[in-house]
Every structure is written in structure tokens, then in C-alpha cells.
Nucleic acid binder design. Sequence first.
DNA 1: CTCGTTGTGAGAGCGCTGCTCTCGTTTCTG
DNA 2: CAGAAACGAGAGCAGCGCTCTCACAACGAG
Lengths: 232, 232
Amino acid sequence: MAATARARVRAEITDEITAIARRHLAEQGASGLSLRAVARELGMVSSAVYRYFPSRDALLTALIVDAFSAVGDAAEQAEVTRPREDVEGRWVAAALGVRAWARAHPHEYALVYGTPVPGYRAPADTIDPAQRVNLVLLRIVADGVASGVVEPGPPLRTPPSLAADLAAVRAALAPDVPDAVLCRALLVWTQVLGGISYELFGHLQNGVHDLDAFFELQVRQGAAYLLRGAAR
Amino acid sequence: MAATARARVRAEITDEITAIARRHLAEQGASGLSLRAVARELGMVSSAVYRYFPSRDALLTALIVDAFSAVGDAAEQAEVTRPREDVEGRWVAAALGVRAWARAHPHEYALVYGTPVPGYRAPADTIDPAQRVNLVLLRIVADGVASGVVEPGPPLRTPPSLAADLAAVRAALAPDVPDAVLCRALLVWTQVLGGISYELFGHLQNGVHDLDAFFELQVRQGAAYLLRGAAR
DNA sequence: CTCGTTGTGAGAGCGCTGCTCTCGTTTCTG
DNA sequence: CAGAAACGAGAGCAGCGCTCTCACAACGAG
């Protein structure tokens, strides 16, 4: 770890830049993130920042990676508060945890689950962190299948193209989880994200007032469906 | 309708501006929409456009209203291809119609269901058009309840705050639709939007390849849950 | 220790953006 | 017909991402 002085100060400044950028993002959103403003706050001239990030988008990519990681953390930290055998509780906790994080960090949430930034194209660096939360969820589901709490239900008749994709997921991440359960999990999870986006992006305005109660109700309904394929 | 010549030409130019803006939006997305570029294409100087729209955001708001209306159209046109008594088919068709529209107009979709634009705050003009699609969906659900195809299921125990909101929706838009069904409808609809966003914003990349088959499977599962409170 | 290489910050500058203000001209209205 | 209102052009301000050049400091090799 005996890096040269230059390498150390470079790492430090890089951290400072991302820290300031993170704050600007949290305060004003992605569209308000200005490389020049970050430089100004750092006491640097804007061109100097380009020594550390080749473009504004590269800086934003770093923040996206951070945000994905934070989503994974939120799910995991919420989930582990429940005993391992309480599969339903773990799922509900993970969903509530992600929502709480999203409400606390709406711009970061928008960055990862909202409209992709202008040109839209996910650099390879972002796909690994994006999987973190999926792993947390799949582990819960896999535990539920193993312990029998998750009812497989009738086998799903999927087109071959789809069956292959599901088989790949199963082989890589969730052994012994049948197609029907994988589909239900994805269904319920997209509902969770859809619900968060719906709320966060203002579509429940003037319709639902007790957002906490509403979201929790929805999540519990979703969890019941995930486990038993039916309401309640 | 004998408007003055000035009023007529004003309406024409306003339409031209929104038409060009709509095209720019479709091609490059909201962040690429430049008032100056629109003015340039119109053969005007940028300041002249401000006679018609007080700000770039106002222009964008007009496009948002358009997009909301287009979503409503997509749902309605897809839905009416099914016989009135085929409630499940109508719901599935509406969902598939909205997805098809979203894939054909990703930037418009992002505008209404993605991250709200920078400052985020929905002008009052946008809430009416936003309701259009909800009305289409609620009508389907209400028809299903009336004909008995939608099973109410066990009554939902909702906190009073939530019950009041649901009662308001019922009174205004969907008489005789019980809370449990309203909740299921909202649950399934947020799943549809979540699924579209998940797909459109790239989260299924490298995971699912046959996106059409996958989405249709999900929608059918969702519809089954909406009608019968259970898978299949 | 010296010398050439490389990393770094400052500065100027390009073309773009949203938006404002002024100034003639055109059109409407009382 | 005269005053008021609407309109388009033009210049200009501050901001943006990004590029290029230049001086200087830190580094590795001899």
C-alpha cells in the first residue's frame, strides 16, 4: 500500500469530487449536477476535474454505482432484522427498506430506477452493483422454497425462449426455484418498484394520503401472492 | 369562431412549435429538447418563441399533457377491441396496448412515468389528462364487478385513513367496487407500469430475451390475480 | 543528482443552452 | 384614426460540457 504521494492525493481528490457530486445530486437531482459547480466548490477550475473524470457522464456513472449499492444495502439491512425462517417477513422488510431508502434519497432512486440519463446506455461497471439487490431477494425466495414456505403452485407453461432464460437464472443464482416462483418473484418485485415510482413521481398525489399504510398494505398483498400464489 | 387573424396565426404557430418539439422529444428525449433548436427549425429567433411559451418547462408541460392523453388512447383503443363482457381480455389488452405504446414512444413514456423533470412539480393542467387511463381501467374493473367476473374476495382490513381515500375513489369513479378490488387493481396496475419501466429502462437486459412473451405472461398473471385474487 | 517523462492545475476559448431586455413594426380595438 | 397590445429580431447575460495550450511539480531511470 506504499502508493506514491501523487497516487494518494489523487485518490483523495477523486473521493472529494464524488462526495461533492453526491451531495449536489441529492440536493438538486441528476439534471442539476454540474461538473463546473463541483469544481467551484472544490476550489478548482473546471478543466482540472477532467483529469479525474473524463466526462460528466462518467461522474454520474460513479454515482449510479453508488446508488445501486445503496439499494442493495437498504434491502439487506432491512431483511436481516428478521429471523431467517420468516421468509414473508424478510421479503416485506426488504421491500419496505428499499422504499424508505427511496423516500430518503429520491434523486438517487430516480437515477437507478427512473428514466435513464440522456443518451441511456449502461456501462458495464453498473451491471454488477445492479445485481446486488436481486441477489438479496433471490436468497429470500430460495430460502422460502427450500423450507417449503413458498408454495410452488402449478407448473407454468412458458414458451421455450422464456424457459431458457429462467433456467439460466436458476442455474446461476437460485437453484431449485421453479419457474412459477421465479416469475411470481419478478412480478411482485416489479410491482414494488412500480409502486415506489408511482408514489415518488407523484402519481398518487391527491388520491392516497396515508402513503405509508398504503404501501405496506400493497407489499403485504404482494408477499402473500409470492408465497402462496393468492391473496392472503 | 371568427377569431382575429392574429389569433388564428398564433394558434397555428403554437401548434407548429409543439409539433416540432414533439418530434425533437421523440428523437432525443426530454433532456435534448431545446427551445432554441425548435426556434431554429421554425425559422424564428429564440426569443420569439417565448411569446408562445413562457419557458422551456411550459413547452415540456404541453408535451406531458399530450403524452398522458396518448397513454389513455393506447389503453382505450386496445381495450375496445374486446367484447365488453370479456373483462379479463380487456384488462390484458389495455396493459399490452400501453406497453406497445411505451415501446414505440419511449421518451414520451419516460416523460410521464419516469423521473419527473428537474424541478418536479406537476402543474394543475396535467392532472386531468393523467386520469384518462385510470378511468379506462376503472371502467373495466367496474364492469367486472357488476357482472360478477371479478371476485371481491374477503373484505380488506384497511386503516381508516386509507379507507377514506378508497371510499372517495369509489364514490367518484367506481361505484360498487369494494376496497379489496380497488387495491388489487392498483396493485396490478403499478405492476404493469413497473414492468414496463423495468424493461424499458434496461433492467431486464441480459436477463430476459423474449420480452414480448415475458410481459404478456406477467400481464396475464396479474389479470388473473386481479379477477380471482389468485394465480390462474 | 540530474534529466527527460508524465501527471496536474490554470486559463482561455468554442459552441451550446435558457432567459431577459430593448426596439421597431404590425395588428387589433375603442 | 389614434392609442394599446402583440409580435419578431437582435444583442446580451450567465451558465453549461468540453478542448486545448502552457507552466510547473512530481516522478523514475541513468
